[in-house]
């Protein structure tokens, strides 16, 4: 686990919704399997006093934090209120906030991520599948049965594509240290730079698989800041060119957000780039 201890107390915001209920069940099943605390409390305004799978629900993060020893929040709150929940978690003193919610307006995300930063909280997501350290902790919605413990870190902008790559790694006998889905939105809290820095400080992680997508230049930025061996895969080589956003996008990103130029720049930085997911295990074996 690259964010804090290996067994943090977890609070789920949006605990009584369909997604919240379902995933509290799965997260706690995983916690029982690995001997962790799992989800210790839930929060849904107006539903204080209820229970979900035996987990007590509170009206606010403040109450939940007062009654439980927790440092992490996982958010399943619908898009319109999700950023309020991120800020509430940061304000209540959470160190790590994992935002699963998708379709959040980007102006809300910018505010929430900045507010959390000023309160010393790290935000993963939004539009993230969460994070999983095999054998230690699962925060979010990743399908745990595909994972196996080991020394390869995975950081990705995708959800299901991450599972595909983890599955390839596990089948090839390559275990993972921590797998982080940083989220597919234009603005996210933890970026490749932040996660790679965590991997670098993590004694368990010996190499990293980076899974990127078209758009932006955060993949290159991340790679240029790390000394760890990295193997990359970039989805979207065959994708139609992104709809142009006036001149500003091109000026900001140097006009090079497409997959091919991203791959070229990663290779220039000395990073092997797989042409398809099935090539990743071989490339990573050469690194270990």
């Amino acid at each position: 686990m690259i964010y804090g201890g290996r067994d943090p107390g977890i609070i789920v915001q949006g605990a009584t919704g369909k997604q919240g209920v379902f995933h509290i069940g799965l997260m706690n099943a995983y916690a029982r399997e690995v001997g962790g605390q799992g989800v210790v409390a839930g929060v849904t305004p107006g539903r204080g006093g209820q229970e979900v799978h035996g987990v007590p629900v509170y009206d606010s993060m403040r109450e939940a934090m007062e009654n439980h020893d927790a440092s992490v929040s996982v958010i399943f709150v619908p898009a319109a209120a999700a950023c309020d929940s991120v800020m509430e978690a940061a304000h209540a003193g959470c160190d790590l906030v994992v935002a699963i919610t998708e379709h959040i307006p980007v102006h809300d995300t910018m505010k929430a991520v900045e507010y959390a930063r000023l309160h010393g909280a790290s935000v993963i997501g939004p539009n993230s599948p969460g994070l999983l350290s095999p054998g230690e902790v699962k925060l979010g919605i990743m399908p745990a049965h595909l994972f196996s413990p080991g020394s390869v870190g995975v950081v990705s902008r995708s959800g299901t594509l991450t599972y595909e790559v983890v599955d390839e790694l596990s089948r090839a006998g390559i275990g993972q240290s921590t797998v982080v889905g940083i989220g597919g939105d234009p603005v996210i809290g933890q970026t490749f730079v932040d996660v790679l820095a965590r991997f670098e400080d993590d004694p368990q992680t010996k190499a990293v698989v980076l899974i990127g997508e078209v758009g932006g230049n955060l993949e290159e930025e991340g790679v240029s800041f790390t000394d760890l061996p990295v193997v990359a895969y970039i989805a979207g080589v065959s994708a139609p060119p992104e709809k142009r956003m006036g001149h500003a996008g091109a000026i900001i990103e140097g006009g090079e957000g497409d997959a091919r130029s991203k791959i070229r720049r990663l290779r220039e930085l000395g990073v092997p780039v797989a042409s398809r997911p099935s090539e990743i295990p071989e490339l990573i074996k050469e690194m270990l």
């Binding site: 980007v106 910018m110 991520v113 900045e114 234009p186 603005v187 996210i188 970026t191 758009g215 932006g216 230049n217 955060l218 930025e221 956003m245 006036g246 001149h247 500003a248 996008g249 091109a250 000026i251 900001i252 990103e253 140097g254 006009g255």
Partner: peptide, 28 residues
């Protein structure tokens, strides 16, 4: 123009003394 800087995670204002159709090549 004002847009979103993905790596800065903030709105970014861009201003240039010479505007017009060739702004992108000028910026490059």
């Amino acid at each position: 123009s004002i847009t979103i800087d993905r790596s800065g995670k903030h709105p970014v204002i861009l201003f240039a003394e010479a505007g017009g159709v060739d702004i992108e090549s000028a910026a490059e």
